[in-house]
Design a protein around this nucleic acid. Structure first.
Lengths: 261, 261
DNA sequence: TCTAATCGTGCATAAACATGTAAATTGACT
DNA sequence: AGTCAATTTACATGTTTATGCACGATTAGA
């Protein structure tokens, strides 16, 4: 948190800009433990180099983010990032994490703190690429025949690999959820994989955007007994929330996790 | 803990840089029990050699080893793409291909014809991402603990997965080659993996940019008997070419493969 | 319009910087 | 041993850089 090389700070800002993220001057000031003036000077310098565009309160990237995934472009990414922030707050140092495939889980990777003493396993190629791009977190990749819809391997060899793991905390990727049908996905093999994943994990969490509550998917993974926390957005309708709680799910609203914003 | 050979200090700094660590001048001064001036002199020298980038307060590695791929992409890519074009010309429909990790092999993916009736296996996360992005080629991913330098898995589980394959044609990633030392790489585990890969492959090809002929790497993979074709650039010096042929390698010059250009 | 946050600029301070010089160390040769 | 050249070091010099604070100007939002 506190000290690093003064100028590496500017590189960090530049890297975030390159990812397409927007910069808030005041936030960076507390994050790097310097005055806002210093941050503003960095932003001015970066803007002079054509690396960003200055706006009131911070700066914006000027061109398209490097975007490895088409999913990131969506306006949903801000909402998914908010869910991911809540997920990161639940992680404890030294844990063995599993990040299941899914665009929301992809956001988690970039929000993980810098010197996290953890190990990450995943079956998603995009998530693996993101973890490797960070470079500071040990990574275990689940191999096998790649399912193009899932974006990773969910075949028998992948299941076998997960069977051999003792996962501390897993973040499940979910396609659809309902009080009656429980958690479900589109692919048969994916469902088998996720059931195994849940069985081998001590803590099981799913980040769920509100629209997932009205999706339908054919293959059921499990119900309230198979998952420890559902992290949901603040705008989840009261009906859905009530139904989920009555079905036995443990809901965690965003505002409960991140009181300050 | 004070003194050692004076110049070993510079090697230590260089090693840390190579690991991607950042250097703080003041910290090193107390650690080595010398004045900051001495450390600064080292950093200046290393920066002059292109080993690091100087910043206020210390120095930063210029290319983080965690993303050698994304950094190498684009640079020299024209030469690598020419090699990759030759590689694509050697592929026959219906083959089971293995693309070993390496930036040159990454270029192959984008040059593959559209309706190629083939299956690709790889242990490289970047190559897997590229194949998945295409979306038209079945992909098998080799899992395991990810080696950040290699950019993929080369551990025991990866070796075991390759042992179970009958590969039709494999494109080997090579770090260094010489007539006497044969083919060699920087990582021990990588060498073991590549030896297994060669053993399980019917046709074995390596694409080699000319500068690889003057690199040195500690771990030997094999010699002329272990590889079927070395695809080399046209600008390969006559001495290197002659030495390689005398050592028994089968060389394929670019101009022999792609007469029209 | 008014208010509060943000911005730009100037200035003082402290840290880090490059440069030069002399002392200390090393290694080789007589 | 003794000497010499080359290297490396620490210290002193002046310069550059980054930072925080104070001030007034500008902006966004009510």
């Amino acid at each position: 948190m506190s000290n690093s090389l003064p100028l590496s700070r500017r590189d960090v800002i530049e890297a975030r800009l390159a990812e397409g993220r927007q910069i808030v001057a005041a936030s960076l000031a507390v994050e790097f433990n310097v005055s806002e003036d210093a941050v503003r000077r960095d932003l001015r310098a970066l803007a002079a180099e054509g690396k960003c565009r200055r706006v009131y309160g911070g700066a914006l990237p000027l061109l398209t983010p490097s975007q490895p995934m088409s999913a990131r472009i969506g306006q949903e990414s801000e909402r998914k990032r908010a869910l991911a922030r809540a997920a990161v707050a639940m992680i404890e140092p030294g844990e063995f994490l599993f990040l299941d495939s899914g665009s929301t889980n992809l956001e988690i990777v970039e929000l993980l703190p810098k010197n996290l003493e953890a190990m990450i396993a995943t079956n998603s190629i995009d998530i693996a690429a993101a973890v490797m791009k960070r470079g500071d977190i040990p990574l275990v990749l689940i191999g096998g025949a790649v399912n193009p819809i899932v974006g990773g391997s969910v075949d028998a060899s992948a299941v076998a690999a997960v069977e051999a793991m003792n996962i501390g905390r897993c973040f499940l990727g979910v396609c659809a959820i309902s009080a009656r049908g429980g958690i479900s996905v589109y692919e048969h093999a994916d469902a088998i994989f996720k059931r195994t994943l849940l069985r081998r994990s001590a803590a099981r969490i799913a980040l769920i955007t509100s629209e997932k509550f009205h999706e339908r998917a054919p293959h059921r993974i499990g119900g309230a007994a198979d998952i420890d926390w559902l992290v949901v957005e603040d705008d989840l309708p009261g009906d859905d929330e009530k139904a989920a709680i009555e079905a036995g799910f443990s809901l965690l609203r965003l505002r409960d996790v991140t009181p300050s914003s």
